[in-house]
C-alpha cells in the first residue's frame, strides 16, 4: 500500500518539482482504540505545496501532531531528509527544519510581536550560557543578528511596523500572520500550516493565499496546508490529499479531487458540502494585490 502510493505520486505530475524531502509510510495513531490516523503515506517533494482536506475529525490535526512530534505515532515510519523522526520530541524536529502553526492560535501572550518572533529566531544562533552571563561581544553580535533576522521575518508578513505591540493586541488575522512569522523564524525547510484561513473573510483569505505563495517562493519552502477553505486549497495547492476517518481516501490534483466521487461522498456524508465549484482555472491564476 505504502510503496504503491509513493510510486504513484512520483509519476510526472506538474507538482513534481523536486526531491522527496519528507516521507511517511504506514503511519498510524490510535487513541485508546480509536484510530485517528491509519496507514498514512506521504512522499512530500522539495518545493511543493500540498493540501490536506477532510471533514472535521478526519485526522488532519492528528497528522500534524504526529509529524511535529507532539504525538508519537503508534505505527509506521516518518523520514525527513533521510532521517527517521517518528518519536523525536517537537523541539528536535523543529531544529531539523519542520515548523508549524496551530489551528487555535498559540502566541506568547505576554510578549511583544517582536519578542514572539525573536524567541523563535534565537533557537538558532543563540548565544551560549557564559557568553550571555558576561555580555561578551559575541553575545551582543548574536543578539543583534537575531533581532535583524526576526525583523526581516516580521517584514515578510507585513508586521514590521507593529513589532513593539503586545502580540495579543493584534487583530485576529494579524495574530495568524504572526504565528506564520514565528514559524518562519525557526528557519524551516518544511512549513505546516494548520487552518491558516480560519476566521478570515473571503478577501482576507485571498490575500493570505497570495502571501503563502510569496513566502513559498521567497524562502524556498515546502508547504503542507490543512484547511477547510476550499478556495484557498484549490488555488494554492498542486496536490491534495483527502482524509476521512483517519485514512487517505483520495489524492491528486485539484481538478482530480473535485471530480472524485469518494470525496464528494465523504463531504456529503459529513453533511458539510464544500463549495468546490467556486475556484476555477481563472481563479487559480487570479492574482491579489497585497492589501497590507
Amino acid at each position: 500500500m505504502s510503496s504503491g502510493l509513493i510510486a504513484e505520486t512520483t509519476e510526472g505530475r506538474p507538482a513534481s518539482t523536486g526531491e522527496p524531502i519528507l516521507r511517511a509510510a504506514g503511519v498510524g495513531r490510535a487513541f485508546r482504540g480509536l484510530q485517528a490516523l491509519a496507514d498514512y503515506d506521504l512522499d512530500l517533494r522539495q518545493g511543493e505545496i500540498l493540501g490536506v482536506i477532510g471533514p472535521n475529525g478526519a485526522g488532519k490535526s492528528t497528522l500534524f501532531n504526529v509529524i511535529t512530534g507532539f504525538l508519537r505515532p503508534t505505527s509506521g515510519r516518518i523520514v525527513f531528509h533521510g532521517r527517521e523522526i517518528a518519536g523525536l520530541p517537537p523541539d528536535k524536529i523543529t531544529a531539523l527544519g519542520i515548523a508549524r502553526t496551530f489551528q487555535n492560535i498559540r502566541l506568547f501572550a505576554g510578549m511583544s510581536v517582536l519578542d514572539n518572533v525573536r524567541t523563535a529566531q534565537g533557537m538558532r544562533g543563540g548565544a551560549g550560557f557564559w557568553e550571555t552571563i558576561f555580555s561578551a561581544p559575541s553575545f551582543l553580535r548574536k543578539e543583534r543578528a537575531i533581532e535583524e533576522r526576526a525583523l526581516e521575518h516580521l517584514a515578510a508578513l507585513g508586521l514590521a511596523d507593529l513589532h513593539g505591540v503586545p502580540a495579543t493586541s493584534l487583530p485576529y488575522g494579524l495574530q495568524r500572520k504572526l504565528e506564520i512569522a514565528r514559524a518562519l523564524a525557526t528557519e524551516p525547510s518544511v512549513l505546516l500550516l494548520d487552518e491558516p484561513a480560519a476566521g478570515m473573510n473571503a478577501q482576507e483569505t485571498a490575500d493570505l493565499t497570495q502571501l503563502i505563495r510569496d513566502l513559498h517562493a521567497r524562502f524556498g519552502l515546502t508547504v503542507v496546508v490543512v484547511e477547510h477553505d476550499m478556495s484557498l486549497i484549490m488555488r494554492l495547492c498542486e496536490r491534495i490529499q483527502v482524509l476521512n476517518y483517519g485514512r487517505v481516501i483520495a489524492s491528486g490534483t485539484p481538478a482530480e479531487i473535485r471530480a472524485d466521487p469518494k470525496v464528494i461522498e465523504a463531504y456529503l456524508g459529513a453533511d458539510e458540502t464544500p463549495d468546490m465549484a467556486l475556484p476555477t482555472v481563472d481563479g487559480r491564476q487570479q492574482t491579489h494585490e497585497e492589501s497590507m
Binding site: 517537537p90 523541539d91 502566541l107 506568547f108 510578549m111
Partner: peptide, 20 residues
C-alpha cells in the same frame, strides 16, 4: 537573552514553545 525569552515562552505557552 535567548535563554530568558525561551523560559518566558515556555511559561506563556508550553506547546508553542516546544513547536519553535
Amino acid at each position: 537573552s535567548s535563554f530568558g525569552r525561551a523560559m518566558i515562552a515556555s511559561r506563556e505557552n508550553l506547546i508553542a514553545a516546544r513547536a519553535i
